[in-house]
């Protein structure tokens, strides 16, 4: 997985808007699209190469979830930031995702992903963290935007 950290993990204050994820980049390749489709068990021919030809391929919409989470994962691996924010990473799971989709992505595209914490709240004995995310191609076309809500069990 080629993830390029474009900025240092910031995140000093554990409030919405103050916890900014490091930007990430993701290279869309025919292999990655196929690997994703195989993992899901999706035989759609648009997600599979024809011999060595990948000119017809596009990425599945749901594959955006795989790269939109990258900045959040980078943030979660910043032990110092997580300690200051009081987030127990080992008990974190995905609670909800919502994405609106724009341009399709194809093999050869690079996607830039950014995100920040937009809401943090308690729900019973759990805590919810909602990140606003955006992914765009190199030409600036928005690929997907939306939210990832993580749950601390």
């Amino acid at each position: 997985m080629s993830v390029v950290v474009r900025a240092p993990a910031v995140a000093a204050i554990p409030g919405p808007g103050d916890l900014i994820c490091p930007d990430a980049e993701f290279e869309v390749t025919a292999q990655r699209i196929e690997d994703y489709a195989v993992a899901i068990g999706d035989a759609n021919p648009r997600f599979r190469r024809r011999g060595r030809d990948s000119s017809h391929m596009v990425a599945p919409r749901a594959m955006a979830a795989a790269y939109l989470q990258l900045p959040v994962r980078l943030l979660l691996t910043d032990a110092d930031a997580m300690r200051r924010a009081g987030i127990a990473v080992e008990r974190i799971l995905f609670g909800e995702v919502e994405y609106q989709y724009g341009a399709l992505v194809r093999p050869g595209d690079w996607v830039r992903i950014s995100g920040r914490l937009v809401d943090r709240r308690a729900s019973g004995d759990k805590e919810l963290f909602t990140f606003g995310m955006r992914a765009a191609r190199e030409d600036g076309a928005e690929v997907a935007c939306g939210t990832i809500t993580l749950v601390r069990r």
Partner: peptide, 27 residues
């Protein structure tokens, strides 16, 4: 959890004749 999200994406894309461009939003 995102594995289930992938299944939901396949459900919709298959219904759309295999065209992922027709899926505009998922939650």
């Amino acid at each position: 959890g995102l594995l289930s999200f992938g299944y939901a994406g396949q459900l919709l894309t298959d219904w759309c004749g295999g065209d992922p461009a027709r899926v505009r939003r998922m939650r």
